[in-house]
Measured scan of single mutants.
Amino acid sequence: MASDGVVVEIGKVTGSVGTTVEIPVYFRGVPSKGIANCDFVFRYDPNVLEIIGIDPGDIIVDPNPTKSFDTAIYPDRKIIVFLFAEDSGTGAYAITKDGVFAKIRATVKSSAPGYITFDEVGGFADNDLVEQKVSFIDGGVNVGNATPTKGATPTNTATPTK
């Protein structure tokens, strides 16, 4: 695992066909100046998982989280898009600690492993708008004895992609 920078880890949970599971997305290594904004994309298989919603985690402190935390689910493109932009203008609602960034709610549709993997990152910046190093650890849903650990090695991303 990367020793510096922010680590975004997609949790690994267990479920069975027809059940709804909650998959946490963790941030670790949050910089001392916090995270003022970030955007990134995960990939998944809508034939295996139906993403039914995404909720902000406990490290989102904006009293009205829909102003700073936004997501979009595109089953036709097989992606989930995340956007966080601190909304106070003063840094008061920045992410300042490690913990759960988001909770992905999904219904298991198939007995195949439900991988959720890193696809791309736009950027991560602290309260001074300084770009942060970030790496990703894939996860998803274990169905029966299947284990979604494909790509469990962190993917280092030093520069934003478009």
Rank of each mutant, 00 (worst) to 15 (best):
D62G: 12
D62F: 15
S135H: 06
T153D: 12
V121F: 01
F69C: 02
A92D: 13
K97Q: 08
N156R: 09
K103D: 14
G151L: 10
A72D: 00
D58G: 06
V141Q: 13
P113Y: 15
V61G: 06
F82P: 00
I51T: 09
Y74C: 00
V21L: 14
F101Y: 03
G140K: 14
E86W: 00
D128F: 05
E131V: 02
D128I: 03
D45W: 08
I137D: 13
G5T: 05
I59P: 07
D76C: 01
V130H: 13
V48T: 04
L49P: 13
T153R: 07
N64S: 08
L129A: 02
F124P: 00
A102W: 12
T117A: 04
T117F: 05
V143H: 12
P75M: 02
I35T: 03
P24N: 10
V41S: 01
I10Y: 04
K150F: 07
L129M: 03
Y93N: 10
G15N: 09
G11L: 06
A85V: 14
K162T: 04
A92T: 10
E22D: 07
P113T: 03
S111W: 03
A152V: 13
D55W: 14
A94F: 01
V8T: 14
D58A: 06
I59M: 15
P154M: 08
D39W: 01
I51S: 07
A102R: 14
V134L: 03
R28V: 06
I137H: 12
E9C: 05
N37C: 15
G91E: 11
P63K: 14
P56A: 04
G123K: 00
K33T: 03
G123Y: 00
S68L: 09
A125G: 03
A36D: 01
I51L: 05
T96R: 12
D55L: 05
V121K: 13
G139D: 06
F124K: 00
A72P: 00
A125C: 06
T90G: 15
E9S: 07
N156Q: 13
N127R: 03
R43M: 04
F82K: 01
I104N: 01
A85G: 00
V6D: 10
D62Y: 15
I23S: 08
T90A: 09
G57I: 03
G91Y: 10
G114Q: 05
G29E: 03
V6M: 04
P63Q: 15
S3N: 02
E120M: 02
V21C: 13
V121I: 15
D98P: 08
P154Q: 11
P160L: 12
V141G: 14
G139L: 02
F124I: 02
D4N: 08
P56T: 10
F69Y: 11
F136P: 08
I23N: 03
V81M: 01
R43T: 06
D87K: 07
I59W: 03
T107V: 12
K12W: 10
D58L: 12
I104E: 01
K33A: 11
V6G: 07
R28L: 11
G34R: 05
V41E: 00
I116E: 02
D55H: 07
K67W: 15
G53L: 08
V13W: 04
P75V: 05
E86Y: 00
C38T: 03
D39K: 01
R105N: 13
K103G: 13
I60Q: 12
V61S: 12
I80D: 15
Q132R: 08
A92M: 14
G122D: 00
R28Y: 15
P24Q: 06
R43D: 05
D76E: 03
A36N: 01
T90K: 05
P160F: 10
A102S: 14
S16C: 04
Y115L: 08
A152H: 11
T66Q: 09
A94I: 03
E120R: 01
V21P: 07
D70V: 15
S88N: 07
V30M: 02
F82G: 01
L129S: 02
V100D: 10
A85Y: 15
V100H: 07
I59C: 05
A112L: 11
R77V: 04
I59D: 10
R43C: 04
V143E: 10
V61L: 13
G11N: 14
A92Y: 13
G53R: 06
N145R: 11
G34M: 14
N47E: 10
V21D: 13
D87V: 15
T66A: 08
A2S: 14
G122A: 00
I59L: 07
G99P: 01
P148E: 03
I10M: 07
V21T: 09
K97E: 10
D58P: 05
G144Y: 13
G139E: 05
P46S: 06
S16P: 10
A92V: 07
T147D: 14
N37I: 01
Y44S: 06
K78M: 04
V17T: 07
E86C: 00
E120Y: 03
E9F: 02
Y26M: 15
S3I: 05
T117I: 14
P56C: 05
I52N: 06
I95K: 01
A106T: 09
V8Y: 00
D126T: 03
V6K: 02
Y44R: 02
P31S: 11
V17Y: 14
Y26D: 03
G91D: 15
V81K: 01
I104L: 12
G91L: 03
D55Y: 04
F136N: 14
V108G: 13
G123Q: 00
G89P: 04
F118V: 03
R43V: 10
A94T: 06
S110I: 05
T19V: 04
P63C: 08
V6R: 08
G15W: 14
G114M: 06
T157W: 13
K150S: 11
G139V: 03
D87N: 14
A92S: 06
T90W: 14
V143S: 11
E131F: 01
V143M: 08
N47L: 05
P56W: 03
V143K: 10
P31C: 00
V6N: 11
K67Y: 14
D87Y: 15
K67C: 06
D4R: 08
G140N: 14
V6H: 08
E22K: 06
N64H: 06
T161N: 13
I51Y: 13
S32I: 11
D62C: 15
I35C: 01
I52S: 08
Y93W: 14
D98C: 06
D87W: 15
T155K: 13
D70H: 02
E9V: 12
P63D: 14
P63G: 15
R105D: 09
T20D: 03
Y93L: 11
T149P: 11
A72W: 01
T19A: 10
E131S: 04
V81E: 01
Y44V: 05
T161Y: 12
T117N: 11
I116F: 04
D39V: 00
R77Q: 06
K109A: 09
I23K: 07
V17N: 15
P154R: 11
V13P: 09
I35P: 01
M1K: 08
F136L: 03
T14E: 05
C38Q: 01
F69G: 04
N142T: 13
T117K: 10
N145E: 10
G114F: 07
P56G: 10
I104R: 01
V30D: 03
K133G: 04
S68I: 14
A92G: 12
P24E: 04
F84N: 01
D39R: 00
N47V: 09
T159N: 14
K133D: 03
D128E: 03
K103N: 07
A102N: 13
N47C: 09
K12T: 12
D70Q: 15
A72Q: 00
A85M: 09
A2V: 10
G89R: 01
R77T: 02
D4V: 07
G122K: 00
T157S: 11
G91T: 04
N64Y: 12
G15V: 08
F101W: 15
D45C: 07
L83Y: 00
N142W: 08
P65E: 14
I80F: 04
I95Q: 08
D126H: 01
D98F: 10
D39P: 00
N142A: 12
F27T: 11
P56Y: 07
T96Q: 03
T96D: 08
N127Q: 02
K103P: 14
I79K: 02
A36F: 00
T20S: 09
I60G: 04
V17G: 04
R28N: 10
P24D: 03
I79C: 02
G144T: 13
T66Y: 15
Y74G: 00
V61P: 09
G89A: 05
T19K: 13
G11M: 04
E131M: 02
